[in-house]
Design a protein around this nucleic acid. Structure first.
Lengths: 168, 168
DNA sequence: TTAAACTTTCAGAAATTATTGAAAATTAAT
DNA sequence: ATTAATTTTCAATAATTTCTGAAAGTTTAA
């Protein structure tokens, strides 16, 4: 198979898989393209390669930059901007984890904290059940946060990696 | 605040948070309602409590059952079915993790395996870069799978919990 | 300045996903 | 068997999310 064909396959597949990760198709495709390209690409090159509109590419590049998965680069003497992906899988993983924590875990924690600090009126049995639920969920969120931190640690640490493997 | 009000708040909020978890609103709301109710509820009660159509409730209950987060129960002498949530947060977490692994990790692994076992033609430098990317991603997926298994272990194991905390 | 190169924004269109509700199917009681 | 209660399915509709493209904005060079 030609390299180009393989890359294309990777980009398309990554795009559809993105949806199940809660990441939109264009963003995932652009990320896949940049990952599979050692040097940076300009907006026009990206538009050309995966057939997306300028607006779409612009918006999703901004988002990828927010996630710290891509950075802008300027080439001396060139007017336009080039975009380069972070190619280090561990650092990619870390940034995705952080973003997920921020978007998925923190709002839940806020909700739970708020409800936990509320006094309820009504049937004592039912109140007890509800409050236990809230407490258990809060514990779980906390657990997940610890685990995410652990993830980060694993990254550049082969010993830790082996430990996880041994424990699991 | 009245208990009912708190429950309602919880259900609504859980519904919107669901979206950021890639779970649809109705499914998350139904789950929240069942979690906050010690005994089982019938389809009609659920429809009534969160104002959803019969079809919607039916579909999403089936999905919750697939995820093993809810089970059917029949009450002696009653014709209709009642639905009860699994109230154990650890077992909930485990089932969600398993489902996520199945839906988010496995398809990625399949894609990577397929591409890794392909011979590419083209610029050797670029081929090398692409293949390294694939290998790194595959390692990462593997890593995540180990971590998920670890999650499962943590559940009923307080010692493990403390270990995670210490490591992270 | 002016103009050309490039980037950003955003209203409307398109695509995708979720929801309804009524008809069909199933189940259980008479 | 017939009927009534309940569950399931699914075409149509609604809601949400994503994408486009052209206009407005910005930057750099002459």
């Amino acid at each position: 198979m030609q390299l180009e064909e393989g890359r294309h396959k990777f980009i398309q597949a990554w795009g559809s898989l993105g949806s199940s990760w809660g990441i939109n198709k264009s963003m995932a495709q652009i990320h896949a393209l940049l990952l599979s390209t050692p040097e940076g690409l300009s907006t026009d090159e990206i538009m050309e390669r995966i057939q997306l509109s300028r607006g779409n590419v612009n918006t999703n590049l901004r988002e990828l930059i927010n996630w710290k998965l891509v950075r802008k680069e300027t080439i001396l003497g060139e007017r336009k901007e080039f975009f380069v992906a972070d190619h280090d899988v561990h650092s990619i993983a870390q940034h995705i984890m952080e973003e997920r924590k921020r978007r998925e875990l923190e709002p839940v924690r806020r909700l739970l904290q708020q409800l936990i600090s509320t006094q309820f009126k009504g049937n004592p049995e039912e109140i007890k059940h509800f409050q236990e639920l809230l407490k258990d969920l809060a514990d779980f969120v906390h657990q997940m946060e610890n685990l995410t931190n652990l993830m980060t640690k694993i990254n550049n640490n082969n010993y830790m990696k082996k430990l996880i493997k041994a424990l699991s």
